[in-house]
Design a protein around this nucleic acid. Structure first.
Length: 348
DNA sequence: AATTCATTATCAC
DNA sequence: CTAACGGTGATAATGAATT
């Protein structure tokens, strides 16, 4: 039995709490709009902003066009990280057996503490009450027989929802939903499924009509997963204390650039940040990946591995510059973004 | 033949 | 009218290189 908790419009709700004058009016947290010329995207917005068809992930320029009078706030990650920590402490008062998947989302394995689904409902409402009392924030909670059902349940009645799905109801609960509501089915997978069935607006029921064999032939190993998921089956586990496998930084230029000075300066800065983060984590690094995005939005990477070692700036910079040079040579056109990522050694 | 490395694609938040 | 589009991290597929 799994409980999924998802904070409602998290970044924006925290900002409303810190500054109640933002409440009740459209509020957008994300990149600077710069009179509609900004290149970033919306991180989160409140429900008033959603009335203007503003959404997470939307280009900030479009959000600005939809509602120029909205309040636009920059992302104050330190603030949200602190609040997220507080919420983690509250979750830990319920169970230590939980997996945090982002600042605003977590799965709790509650099979040991909930004998039945009415107990689970009580645990969910208690958790919501604690978070509201201690942090003045609302969230949505879903309970189901596995992580996927719990997540769809929590999404289904937000904001401030509490949805319990008993195992006997799992199949009925998902059958009429859009295929896009199944976690892991993104735009590309949806499109390929539409092509298989020669039909748009697919529901979970539609996808159930595709045989395991056909899914396997189109999607390979993932086919099995899709076959199971549309039938409500998901045996992925709640994993607490997950260690990062990589860390990276990337940066989009204000304007696509060819200026070597600008590129190398930005590169030096992000290498320094990645080196600092890797040293801070005290982890051994085995590879470095350099990312370069062209004006045409093509993303290219170059990477090199080495014996696992604790790295410093000079080491990373020497390795990275070579890769960057390769990328710039092959590209020659204006650059939109550069990035650096390090992969940690498995052990350690 | 099996494993690791390098690259790209897809997805999520 | 249409396109517009971050940063961070995970995982899988695929093919090449290495053991």
């Amino acid at each position: 039995m799994i409980l999924h908790i998802d904070m409602d419009y998290f970044f924006a709700q925290v900002e409303e709490r810190e500054n109640p004058r933002f409440s009740g009016k459209p509020l957008v947290v994300g990149a600077e709009p710069k009179e509609g010329r900004g290149r970033g995207v919306v991180s989160t917005c409140n429900y008033e902003a959603r009335k203007y068809k503003i959404r997470s992930g939307m280009p900030i320029s479009r959000a600005y066009k939809n509602c120029p009078d909205a309040t636009f706030l920059p992302v104050n990650m330190k603030l949200y990280e602190g609040v997220s920590e507080n919420i983690s402490r509250i979750i830990e008062s319920v169970t230590k057996n939980y997996e945090k998947v982002s600042l605003d989302e977590a799965y709790l394995d509650i099979k040991e503490i909930a004998k039945n689904y009415s107990t689970a409902e009580r645990i969910g409402s208690d958790l919501k009450k604690l978070i509201l009392e201690r942090e003045s924030l609302t969230c949505s909670v879903g309970v189901g027989e596995n992580k996927m059902i719990a997540k769809i349940a929590s999404e289904s009645e937000k904001p401030d929802g509490l949805v319990i799905v008993k195992p006997c109801d799992s199949s009925r609960f998902i059958v009429s939903r859009s295929i896009r509501e199944i976690p892991g089915i993104g735009p590309k997978t949806e499109k390929r499924l539409q092509e298989i069935l020669s039909k748009g607006n697919l529901t979970v029921k539609d996808v159930r009509s595709i045989s395991k064999e056909q899914l396997n032939s189109v999607f390979g190993k993932r086919g099995e997963d899709i076959y199971n998921r549309v039938r409500g089956v998901d045996d992925s586990q709640v994993v607490s204390e997950k260690k990062a496998k990589s860390i990276g930084r990337e940066e989009t230029f204000d304007k696509d650039t060819l200026d070597p000075e600008k590129i190398i300066n930005t590169f030096r800065k992000i290498v320094a940040e990645v080196a600092e983060a890797a040293i801070e984590e005290d982890r051994k690094v085995k590879s470095i990946v350099v990312v370069c995005r062209s004006m045409e939005y093509e993303t290219h990477t170059r990477q090199v591995s080495f014996g696992p070692q604790v790295i410093d700036f000079d080491f990373l910079y020497k390795k990275g510059v070579r890769l960057l040079l390769h990328l710039l040579t092959e590209n020659s056109g204006p650059i939109r973004l550069i990035g650096v990522r390090v992969l940690f050694a498995v052990d350690d």
